[in-house]
Design a binder for these strands. Structure first.
Lengths: 223, 223
DNA sequence: ACAAAAGTGTTAGGGGTACACCCATGG
DNA sequence: CCATGGGTGTACCCCTAACACTTTTGT
């Protein structure tokens, strides 16, 4: 059977919270087209692997990061999005805890964290892919337990709150936030340990609970 | 450059509300593989058209339906989802008003509405695509004005409520629903006309308003 | 003692649910 | 007059926002 030949790639929007900023993992392109421009990590899907498997493999190859969460974002296939040939890319969204990019990774030498506010003029249509990924992350924090994917294995309520504040770019009331997340059954799993790493009264340490959804949701203010 | 060759298709989950059931548009396959089985409508993306354009074209070719809403759903690309060759499909979700399938359409002769509860054992991985599409529709009714895409140009509050009840499979309080949707600014545009087609007191007729999002959302009960 | 961060109590208000009640038409 | 569906009023409840206040550490 005749069919138009396409290349299929996966691209990755890898987000993390570093300090007070939401950052995305970018690589500098070493070849045409868009040589020298920043781009999302990604690559060709192999003939015998699925889309999710390709995304997982690329993430490991290009970054070596511990991944907290990985999901399909959307597909992009404008006929002229790659000047060389017809390429359809299946973008994925990954949320990872704050960690340095391992330089030992095979292709990771050029990977680095860039604040999303400064990530512009990316190669291909990656500006739009990134914007879609950030919007997806912002929206899913409202009604899922996804924010814990940005934290390490053990974290305090304040660290989880910082994730929300950085991703949404809006301060939250610490008291109400504390009551809300500790009151949601299955969201947080107390370890019994405490920490005082941020000064002040020691805070309880928690692990992610089993809950995936937030009922009721934690809404961004409408204003 | 060498790259693994893929075929790229679009598949369509076309939903409507007919009577008391949520229905999906299916076509019977006339060739191998899965000859004689039901499948979602779809086809190959052409070399010089985008993904959304391909979905729009296929929908027109295979059904000739007036489309109320069309959006990308997700992509599916397991290596063995098509026994002939490697195929990645970009599924789209379409919501349309209740209308008969035009038999004049080119490929539409075999297209027909099937209640989603009875749509099983579809070709390829279309069972899962359909399930994902139905879940997406259910979720988006909560916080968007998408339900109006199932209605004709003019509709009553009760017809809009029926959409919610059929899609969610759960009765809603007519009084509270009425207050809620008429109280959301920009959602409904009164025509000034009334109708008595369902008996009882005449109901106001409305058109879709400009609002795309529902604030506050209309939540499915947690129970 | 003081600063800083964790965590609790309390109050006022918005939106949801449940349901009593009234309105307008057909038969 | 009654059945049927359209539409309004209202009481209760839960959740949220706002903020006063207490607890527990480091310096």
């Amino acid at each position: 059977m005749a069919f138009p030949p396409f290349a299929v790639t996966v691209d990755l929007v890898v987000l993390t919270v570093r300090g007070d900023e939401l950052c995305v993992l970018l690589v500098r392109r070493g070849e045409e087209p868009f040589l020298g421009r920043d781009a999302l990590p990604g690559g060709f899907v192999r003939p015998d692997e699925g889309l999710a498997a390709a995304a997982t493999r690329e993430l490991a190859e290009e970054t070596g990061l511990d991944v907290g969460h990985l999901e399909q974002l959307a597909s992009y296939g404008d006929p002229d999005r790659d000047p060389r040939q017809r390429v359809v890319t299946v973008a994925h969204l990954a949320l990872v805890p704050d960690q340095p990019v391992p330089t030992a990774g095979t292709d990771a030498a050029e990977a680095r964290w860039v604040p999303v506010a400064q990530a512009r003029d990316l190669a291909f249509d990656h500006d739009r892919v990134l914007a879609d990924g950030v919007e997806r992350a912002r929206a899913k924090l409202e009604y899922t337990a996804l924010a814990t994917a940005f934290c390490g294995a053990e974290f305090t309520v304040a660290q989880l709150r910082r994730v929300y504040e950085v991703v949404w770019g809006r301060p939250l009331d610490p008291r109400n936030f504390h009551r809300k997340v500790t009151g949601t059954p299955g969201l947080l799993d107390p370890t019994g340990e405490t920490t005082t790493r941020d000064g002040g009264r020691p805070a309880q340490l928690y692990r992610r609970g089993e809950a995936e959804q937030l009922h009721p949701p934690l809404l961004r203010a409408d204003t």
